[in-house]
Design a protein around this nucleic acid. Structure first.
Lengths: 102, 102
DNA sequence: CTGGAATATGCCTGAAATGGCATATTAATA
DNA sequence: TATTAATATGCCATTTCAGGCATATTCCAG
């Protein structure tokens, strides 16, 4: 199973997740929207499903996929300390501006 | 050149970035800390350098690498809408708790 | 200017992942 | 039950990448 970091490495999978943010959709709809053939779409969905980033619901022959973004928290958590770096630099900039005002 | 998303796919590179959060370090120090051989470390640093995630400073024969986390903003930005999903669920949970208090 | 330390680079190999295509599976419908 | 729609899976070819090793490069010290 791929880690969520590896999953995000592929632009196609990122687009797929972005598309699913609009709401749950069938495999066919997704394939059409993202202009990839059906088997490729099924494979992308499978990798995301195995990692728990998407979930499925069955509707007759259709599989309706929906976003399950909880798994992305791992990425967000990893990123957190770096966010502190940016804010640190922002603070530094603010201090600079303040000193200029004096 | 790799995208920042692809760069984060490799656990070794993530560890390297994490290590650099402690402060700037030479190639040799980094290799020792992360228990990888020197050529491998130089390669990892090169890929990160090409993407602008780290920067170098020359000190005699040594190359001192430091973190340049600005490039990670792209990941953070992409992640932002998903963060909204989590908060949404948090809000829902809070509403549930409030209704329980009534 | 010679030797050694620190780092980078080139080459090769093995592993893994993507894309395309054919085909299997599952479910509805006539 | 035969047919068709929707989806999944298996296989093959191609590519890409990390790892390991040898070696080139750069710089200081003596």
């Amino acid at each position: 199973m791929m880690t969520c970091f590896e999953l995000l490495a592929d632009p196609g999978r990122r687009s797929l997740l972005d598309e699913l943010r609009k709401g749950e959709q069938s495999v066919g709809t997704l394939a059409k929207q993202l202009k990839v053939n059906q088997p490729a779409m099924s494979k992308q969905l499978k990798t995301l499903r195995e990692a728990g980033l998407v979930a499925v619901r069955i509707d007759a022959q259709r599989r309706i996929y929906r976003l399950n973004p909880e798994g992305l928290r791992e990425v967000d958590d990893w990123l957190a300390p770096y966010r502190a770096f940016w804010e640190q630099r922002l603070d530094a900039m603010e201090r600079t501006l303040e000193s200029l005002e004096d």
